[in-house]
């Protein structure tokens, strides 16, 4: 089963390699990986998408926790989460296809971020299924180049807390 794992790490050289080594050394697969600094620039957040049964995922989480530069590991599949991915799709367009390309982009709320007489570059953001559906529809027009960010994901805030918070604020205001 596919799992999305958030890994908070030290923002130091060599950390990506330690995490990547862990996966390659034990024969686990990384499907996508994205890394960027957090609000605190001394830390980075990695979002890793991987596959495995429960036993493998348990080992991956434990092994990640064992890496000294790893500060926190969360298997997002344990609760609700929101995921997003962005793709930049450069399509080769003949004159008669240009309107169709824009229509498809529009269906997926994509934006044209670059344009030449023979190409469009479309930016589309969404969950994986949306991004892939968009790519599939654009493919017959002729995709020249495609880059994807890999997925980022964040846990949904539990509903109970979300309701409780404003009340507390109200009290404080009084």
């Amino acid at each position: 089963m596919e799992h999305i794992i958030s890994v908070l790490v030290e923002n130091k050289f060599g950390v990506l390699s330690r995490v990547a080594n862990l996966f390659s050394g034990r024969g686990y697969n990384i499907e996508t990986l994205s890394v960027a600094p957090t609000l605190d620039p001394s830390m980075s957040m990695m979002t890793i998408v991987t596959q495995g049964d429960d036993r493998i995922i348990e080992q991956i989480v434990k092994q990640l926790n064992k890496v000294i530069d790893v500060i926190k590991v969360v298997d997002l599949n344990e609760a609700e989460f929101v995921e997003r991915e962005t793709a930049l799709i450069k399509i080769h367009t003949r004159q008669e296809d240009r309107a169709e390309a824009l229509r498809i982009a529009d269906i997926f709320r994509g934006k044209v971020v670059d344009s030449t007489p023979t190409t469009y570059t479309i930016e589309v953001t969404g969950d994986v299924r949306k991004v892939e559906a968009c790519i599939n529809l654009l493919q017959p027009l002729g995709i020249k180049e495609l880059v994807r960010t890999g997925r980022v994901a964040i846990a949904r805030e539990p509903v109970r807390q979300a309701v409780a918070q404003p009340r507390r604020i109200l009290k404080e205001e009084k």
Partner: peptide, 8 residues
């Protein structure tokens, strides 16, 4: 002491 040893 090593959680990764357990259920490996």
């Amino acid at each position: 002491i090593d959680p990764t040893s357990i259920r490996k």
